[in-house]
Simulated assay, not measured.
Amino acid sequence: MNLILERTEQVAFFTNMREVLAAAGIAAQDYDWYLSNIETNFTPSAFSAEDQWMGGEALACLLREHDVQFIWAVFSAVPKGFRSSVTAAPYVEGNPDYWNGAQLSPQLDGALFEIACWDSSATILINLPAHAQRSFIATFSDTQPLAGCRRARQ
């Protein structure tokens, strides 16, 4: 099941990836990541808003040291050491597939799951492992199935 968290008072601010990963019981360092379609509230030194591969340790360090709000972004989790050529970067801004009711899978070939930050007002979880879904829902009870969220978003 794919999930969405929006319209809630349960978070201080949406798309704080440190809180998202902690709620899901996911350690950033257990995966490598492809970050794409990135817009943040500020850009910490040694971080770029360009699409990029990032090792899990580097992502964990970034999230530990900075309270970055990802306004738009797609975090694609892949097995450690995995890299593929990216022909079409995953994107969230303007992506109608999140809202058409289809059963989605990660956009990046080889990704295990993806976390999308939607306009700093929603967090979308695609293909999370079952234990991570349960953990996230237990932390944020306002989480809903994405399939039931059929809004026109532009």
Rank of each mutant, 00 (worst) to 15 (best):
T123D: 02
D119R: 09
T143R: 04
I115P: 00
D119M: 03
A102Y: 11
D119N: 07
I124W: 14
W118R: 04
R83S: 15
C117M: 11
T143M: 02
D97I: 03
R134E: 05
F82P: 14
A77K: 14
A130Y: 14
S85K: 15
S105F: 10
R151Q: 08
I124Y: 11
C117D: 03
N100Y: 10
A102L: 09
A132Q: 03
T139W: 02
S84A: 15
S85E: 14
V78S: 05
S121W: 02
E114Q: 06
P145W: 10
G110C: 08
Q107L: 05
L112M: 11
S105T: 09
T123P: 02
C149S: 13
P90D: 05
F82W: 11
P129T: 00
I124K: 07
R150I: 01
N95K: 13
S135T: 00
A147T: 03
V92W: 12
L146S: 01
I124G: 12
L104F: 12
L104Y: 07
T139V: 09
F140R: 01
N95W: 05
L104Q: 12
T123Q: 09
R134G: 05
L104W: 11
A132K: 04
I126D: 12
G101R: 10
P79Y: 07
P129G: 04
A89H: 07
D109R: 13
Q144V: 01
R151S: 06
R151P: 03
E93Y: 13
H131V: 02
Q107M: 09
Q107K: 12
L112S: 05
V86P: 13
A152I: 06
Q144G: 07
K80Q: 07
S85L: 09
Q103H: 13
V92F: 08
N95G: 04
T139N: 05
A88T: 10
R151T: 00
E114G: 06
A89F: 06
